[in-house]
């Protein structure tokens, strides 16, 4: 854990292989703790985690709050509807208010890409000793989801030692609305860093060709790629071709509003072309598993029977793994900070 140098967690594009190893190793330790009885660790006692969710969320926020509580941190939540944002207060003003209350970690979600980065930069400039943890910003990034997906896959491939090495050479297929998915973007950085081959599959309106070059260079503002050799990324328009020999399939939620944006002709057609069914899963490798960040549109991205089958679906495992992964992130960001 000595190599960890991140003051904030904003984008997995900035993670080195060591960073992924650190998070997964720590998450595995937290995962091994008993879930019944005295479950709390005192690691973050006296620290305050504030969730600033400017976009509605139940699952992610609950997962973060539970993670913080299991590390004995204090937890505070911000709800825009009861805030003073409507009175013209800026995001930075809001953040600084909570920092003044003693927040050590701000877990931020916003519908606009770049907001957590801007907040982190502004708070750094202001000399505030607070960590910003991106819980999803626009279409840009969802680091904790990307990490919990990685952890879930690593545990599937190497249950005893779920490290990035477990992903090397594996073929992971991501199916669906990649364009509008911050989860897919985080998955791309995480999976390729670990040496996995990523196959993207979807219609051209939801998966532009340029995604084939997604990890070929770091994102704007980042000078260099911290990963020396990434796994390849390719695009397949045929789901059958994409699934052939796959080791895992990650499907993405399809928002109903895509219909109104003329990006699809019908949900039925989408399901026929890109929906995951048991027959299609049979095209994958023998131990392939299915992931989905949730919530699932049954009968659109996935057939219900596949989702409910614990022999192939890792969806509940993803939710379960979200807690130790978020514990790891909170611990890495807050445990080393001196108490104020």
């Amino acid at each position: 854990m000595s190599s960890w140098s991140h003051r904030h967690v904003l984008d997995l594009a900035a993670f080195s292989l060591d960073d992924f190893t650190t998070v997964l190793t720590l998450a595995q330790r937290f995962r091994a703790l008993p879930v019944a009885g005295a479950r709390k660790l005192p690691a973050l006692q006296g620290r305050l985690m504030t969730s600033l969710f400017f976009e509605p969320s139940t699952r992610t926020r609950s997962s973060f709050e539970l993670a913080a509580k299991r590390l004995s941190a204090d937890v505070q939540s911000f709800s825009p509807s009861s805030s003073s944002l409507s009175k013209g207060e800026s995001l930075l003003d809001t953040a600084r208010t909570y920092v003044a209350m003693g927040a050590n970690v701000l877990v931020v979600r916003h519908r606009c890409a770049g907001v957590p980065q801007s907040l982190a930069a502004d708070l750094d400039r202001a000399g505030e000793r607070v960590a910003v943890l991106n819980a999803g910003d626009g279409l840009h990034s969802h680091p904790s989801q990307g990490l919990l997906d990685l952890f879930t896959l690593a545990r599937h491939f190497a249950p005893e030692a779920p490290t990035p090495a477990a992903l090397r050479g594996k073929r992971i297929v991501i199916v669906g609305d990649v364009l509008h998915s911050r989860v897919a973007r985080s998955n791309l950085w995480a999976l390729t860093a670990c040496g996995a081959e990523v196959v993207l599959c979807g219609p051209p309106t939801l998966l532009p060709d340029a995604f084939a070059d997604f990890v070929a260079a770091p994102p704007p503002g980042q000078a260099a790629d911290p990963v020396v050799a990434r796994g390849p990324v390719r695009i397949e328009r045929s789901l059958e071709a994409a699934l052939a020999g796959a080791d895992a399939v990650m499907t993405l939620r399809l928002q109903q509003e895509r219909m109104h944006q003329h990006l699809l002709s019908s949900l039925d057609t989408y399901h026929r072309q890109f929906g995951i069914t048991r027959a299609r899963l049979a095209l994958c490798g023998p131990f392939a598993r299915l992931l989905h960040p949730g919530p699932v549109n049954r009968g659109v991205e996935l057939a219900g029977d596949v989702l409910d089958d614990p022999a192939v679906s890792l969806v509940e495992e993803q939710v379960r793994n979200g807690i130790p992964v978020r514990m790891a992130l909170l611990y890495l960001l807050a445990a080393a900070e001196p108490l104020t």
């Binding site: 770049g114 626009g138 840009h140 364009l179 340029a210 995604f211 997604f214 260079a217």
Partner: peptide
Amino acid sequence: VDALRAGWPL
């Protein structure tokens, strides 16, 4: 691809 990486609406 830069806009895709940054997550901006295209």
